[in-house]
Design a protein around this nucleic acid. Structure first.
Length: 270
DNA sequence: CCCAACTCCTGGGCGC
DNA sequence: TGCGCCCAGGAGTTGG
């Protein structure tokens, strides 16, 4: 599932190509989740940005195209249209160089969505509107993160997935970060010391994910259709029943607030 | 405001 | 070989 590192990888790959590209033609699946894709025909694009797990492209008429990849979404840039029955939206664009390319949004399970809004107008997008700070924002310090965590009384794992204390963390990187910080996913109150450790761990697992071009378990591919390699360096996610890499106890898995969670019962005690 | 429950979706894995 | 069942889960929606 695309989380911050996967979305960041795509952003880095095609952001520059989109600058000053003109949208010549577009079409989409008929679902209202995707039809806004058609609204930007005739505009010129700006850079592609990332906010949490959202991709945002500005247009030259003061709007923004917002893409969320959901569970199985892929955004890719190709020279000729791909034979792919799961393409939910596509845009034919003319790059600044004069070359024509196709930006394709493919999404088997249709959990992704596309929106077009006036610049910065996210009032109809609850998650984006109340999103916490970017993990690599230098202004995000230990004190702020700790205070953000304390705003909710929910399980820390669930709190992270809400995108409110910090942006961009999903199920995989949440389990990874909690393992590294040795925090029980069901903990509800986090000491300042533990919060500091968690922030370090989040930054570390996300950076490693970016460095590895994302985690490809099943569906994730980058903007050129390539797999990431971070799945080879996971310490918690998907390791239920296997030995903890730190203490050799058997890793445990359970559903916490409807999300599968894997942790070490020995070194992630409450 | 917060939170919990429900909803959206389909390929793939498994038991029989 | 194929059928039925279940699982993966981010975020939007609804209702308390």
């Amino acid at each position: 599932m695309p989380e911050l590192p996967e979305v960041e990888t795509i952003k880095r790959q095609i952001s520059e190509d989109l600058v000053d590209a003109e949208v010549i033609e577009a079409d989409s699946h008929e679902s209202a989740k995707f039809t806004p894709a058609r609204e930007i025909v005739g505009t010129k694009l700006g850079e592609l940005r990332r906010r949490g797990k959202f991709l945002i492209v500005s247009t030259d008429d003061d709007r923004e195209l917002i893409v969320h990849l959901g569970m199985t979404g892929k955004l890719r840039l190709v020279e000729t249209p791909t034979e792919d029955k799961y393409i939910r939206a596509w845009w034919k664009i003319e790059l600044e160089s004069g070359a024509y390319q196709f930006l394709e949004f493919s999404d088997v399970r249709r959990f992704g969505r596309i929106k077009v809004v006036k610049t910065g107008d996210y009032k109809d997008m609850a998650t984006l509107n109340s999103m916490g700070p970017e993990p690599f924002d230098e202004k995000l310090d230990n004190q702020t993160f700790w205070e953000n965590l304390k705003k909710s009384k929910r399980h820390v794992k669930t709190n992270l997935l809400s995108q409110k204390p910090i942006a961009g963390v999903g199920n995989i990187y949440a389990d990874e970060a909690l393992w590294h910080a040795q925090i029980n996913p069901k903990a509800k109150t986090i000491s300042k010391k533990k919060a500091e450790k968690l922030l370090v761990a989040i930054r570390q697992v996300l950076q490693q994910g970016i460095d590895n071009g994302g985690t490809t378990l099943r569906d994730y591919r980058d903007a050129y259709g390539q797999s990431g390699s971070n799945q080879r360096q996971l310490y918690a996610y998907g390791r239920s029943g296997e030995e903890c890499f730190r203490c050799s106890k058997i890793m445990k898995s359970d559903t916490i607030d409807a999300r599968t969670t894997t942790w070490c019962p020995q070194c992630q005690k409450k």
